[in-house]
Design a protein around this nucleic acid. Structure first.
Length: 393
DNA sequence: TCTGGGGTCCTAGGACCC
DNA sequence: TCTGGGGTCCTAGGACCC
């Protein structure tokens, strides 16, 4: 049986939310991302309105470049809490049409509406209705791709933006994919594109027509999947939300720093953030990863496995500190540090295992802090060590 | 002109165990 | 004199996605 998969994707999501909340920004080039600091800012564009795209601005563009290309733009810092709020409304709308929803990001999802036809009509009608309701109830514009599988549905919505609706029937799939560049294939980024180019492969059709056996040296271990994708075959199911595999926080310093104190304070703040998010989800981590980037943009990660799972800030911080000592360089300035918790699972207490009374005290303290922050905001309460020097990043 | 922050998945070598 | 074979865990790095 042919499935009916929808890919729903909001157009210029962050920028559109800003234009929704601030009517005076409508019709203007809105650029959401890092602080441009008059062209000297660090970071990139997170999202921008279609008005801004006419100036050559796009997401992931360095913010300094965006400033130069579009000095008259409305530059805004992201308000993730607000975007999450709107996102919830959108997902609530999607849930009216099917239970089979797989979120891809804050503003994007796959829907399997194969079984929804009796109630809601043909897939194309469902897509049109979703667009109508999202616009009427939220005030934002979505694009929707409809196809027999996820891969084709995703490409369809990408290609019909903005405010698009594109249906690709099963017998149209090959003709639809063939002329597209190989970089449209899932999992084919700049590196793989370059490698495939060297073999003269430019379009998805070029890949689809290859002989699997001959491809071995070209594509490596993932050749079967890639070949099938290129041929428009994708059996992956639409699977509702799964628990996170890792939770991390990282920060790029406004200026590269050689100040050990600043680095330590930052690691503490990051450990704090990560542990709070672990506790909120009632999970604990067995592995802590420290990420470090120096002034030459060289990046290293070091990880360590803890004797037992933790959600306690102090333990994560101590693990990060022990990893700091194993870093390969000392003489270069630091651009970025990050702390990530992985190998997540239930905390010991939930498993019914013995928990050291000392840790119980720390956890109670941490939970109390969480509550205060919940009620009065993130900055309501902080560790003394964080206040010693300068501002918390 | 530089290159964010949140993730996922895969590979590969070495340790370790039976 | 030679030194199996398989499985799992740990660690580091890389490609990729939004």
């Amino acid at each position: 049986m042919v499935r009916a998969i929808l890919h729903v994707d909001m157009d210029a999501f962050y920028a559109s939310v800003e234009q929704l909340d601030h009517p005076e920004y409508r019709g203007k080039p809105v650029i959401v991302g890092a602080n441009p600091k008059a062209g000297r800012g660090r970071g990139v564009v997170a999202a921008c309105s279609y008005e801004a795209r006419r100036f050559g601005v796009h997401s992931a563009l360095p913010i300094s470049k965006a400033w130069r290309r579009c000095p008259q733009g409305v530059f805004l810092r992201p308000r993730f809490d607000r975007y999450a709020e709107i996102s919830e409304k959108i997902f609530a709308i999607l849930a009216r049409f099917t239970d089979l929803i797989e979120p891809l990001s804050i503003d994007e999802a796959f829907l399997d509406v194969t079984g929804s036809s009796r109630l809601f009509g043909a897939p194309e009608d469902i897509a049109r209705e979703i667009k109508r309701v999202v616009r009427a109830e939220v005030g934002l514009v979505a694009s929707v791709g409809v196809a027999p599988n996820k891969f084709v549905a995703k490409i369809a919505s990408d290609l019909c933006k903005p405010d698009g609706l594109l249906v690709v029937e099963e017998d149209q799939v090959r003709g639809f994919l063939d002329p597209l560049p190989i970089s449209r294939l899932w999992g084919v980024g700049p590196r793989t594109t370059e490698r495939l180019r060297r073999y003269g492969l430019r379009t998805i059709g070029d890949v689809a027509r290859l002989d699997s056996a001959l491809m071995a040296p070209i594509l490596g271990s993932e050749r079967e999947e890639l070949l099938l994708l290129a041929q428009g075959v994708d059996d992956r199911a639409v699977t509702p939300e799964s628990p996170p595999k890792s939770i991390g926080a990282e920060v790029t310093f406004p200026q590269d720093t050689g100040d050990v104190d600043e680095i330590l304070r930052t690691l503490l703040a990051l450990s704090d953030r990560v542990s709070a998010r672990l506790r909120r989800r009632r999970i604990a981590a067995r592995v802590v990863v420290l990420k470090f980037r120096d002034e030459t943009f060289t990046t290293a990660t070091k990880s360590t496995t803890l004797p037992e799972p933790t959600d306690v800030e102090e333990e994560i911080y101590r693990a990060a500190l022990s990893l700091l000592e194993r870093l390969p360089w000392r003489d270069r300035k630091t651009r970025l540090v990050g702390v990530t918790a992985t190998h997540l699972g239930p905390p010991r207490a939930q498993l019914g295992l013995f928990v050291d009374p000392n840790r119980v005290r720390k956890q109670r303290l941490a939970s109390a802090v969480d509550d205060i922050r919940e009620r009065f905001g993130e900055s309501a309460i902080r560790r003394g060590a964080l206040l010693k020097k300068g501002k918390v990043p």
